[in-house]
Nucleic acid binder design. Structure first.
Lengths: 193, 193
DNA sequence: TCTGAATGGAACACTGATGTTCCATAACGG
DNA sequence: CCGTTATGGAACATCAGTGTTCCATTCAGA
């Protein structure tokens, strides 16, 4: 008999948690490149047997859900770190941009995998999303963000720029840093009043 | 015995050409929403039997190739219409943006379907692509485009903005016109020196 | 009208992914 | 060190999509 560790979806720490993470991380990296990759591929990428993948995620959809949840958590954490309420809203968005950029493949997945969006907690406005939109509106009043630009438009814009930045590192072989510089430079000019 | 009409991939005009178009158009609309849609779904969407689809495109990859070619042609035509060499480069890009916007679902497909990009004539620089990059560099010298912005970055930026604009019409339920206005407004500010 | 072209649908074989079960082995942890 | 726990791999049933063949029917156009 063992302690009940998995009470709220978060597995206890130990061997299981580590394996679980390995599978999710491998899946994110792999699916970002090819959303149709098979579970066998995921298993291979994670360095575990296909059976083990099924042991942790009985159905493919279970894995997708876990990935979705995982990314949402990362987004929430990144939003937290950006301290959106500090200083001018425009500056806050730039900080957020940098934080989100670190999500890497998770970013690509959110863009290219509508299947993830199918899962429940997505278009239902996240707390992070609400916070983002609110910050844009704050920018409208504190004069640091162009009032012509809709809050939802700014959100879409930020995501697009981030996607572009990643694409830029791949297609133009630019360094992460220079891509981020271009990204921030562009964002700053785009949202300036 | 009949005239040899299909000499260069472009089927002759008549029943065959019309059916072919119906299939390609349906496929573009469907795959934009779900890149994994089956050929049976495509057939249903086109209002033809699955057998007929296979008659025109023996393998799935043949259909994908045809779609890729079709979109490339549309892009080329749109580039033509934008008259990139007329007036200030920045204005030229705005015109191009408007033309590309009309590609609709084709736009989404180019973004979300790397499988299409797998096919030959993609990252091999298209004439349209060359023309685009050249126009950006022209903008650097004629002073209408921020010299800080790499030509490839501007290209990625334009595509991202277009994608954002379409996403905006869906998520925010904005009209095509207002989305385009935001898009152009943002582009103008982003590339201004 | 009349003929060849175009189509739809059924039936079939084939393939790759999925999900399950079972068992032997390896690793972990007390 | 030993028992519990986790794992890998093989074998299997199932399923959906794919691609093919054949035939009866419909349609287009001369």
């Amino acid at each position: 008999m063992r302690m009940v560790e998995e009470r709220s979806g978060a597995a206890g720490s130990g061997t299981r948690a580590r394996t679980r993470r390995a599978i999710i991380d491998a899946a994110i990296g792999l699916l970002a490149g090819d959303p149709t990759a098979s579970l066998g591929d995921v298993a291979a990428a994670a360095g575990v047997g296909r059976t083990t993948v099924h042991r942790y995620f009985p159905e493919r959809s279970d894995l997708l859900t876990a990935i979705g949840t995982d990314i949402l958590e990362k987004v929430a954490a990144a939003t937290e770190r950006a301290r959106l309420d500090d200083g001018p809203a425009a500056k806050a968005l730039e900080r957020l941009c940098q934080e989100y950029f670190e999500l890497g493949d998770g970013l690509t997945l959110m863009f290219e995998t509508p299947q993830l969006a199918t899962w429940s907690g997505w278009d239902e406005e996240t707390a992070a999303d609400q916070h983002f939109l609110h910050t844009v509106r704050r920018g409208h009043t504190d004069g640091s963000i162009d009032p012509e630009l809709d809050d939802e438009w700014v959100r879409n814009l930020v995501w697009s720029l981030l996607y572009s930045a990643w694409a830029h590192t791949r297609t133009a072989g630019a360094s992460k840093h220079s891509a981020m510089t271009l990204c921030l430079h562009t964002l700053r000019k785009a949202i300036a009043p």
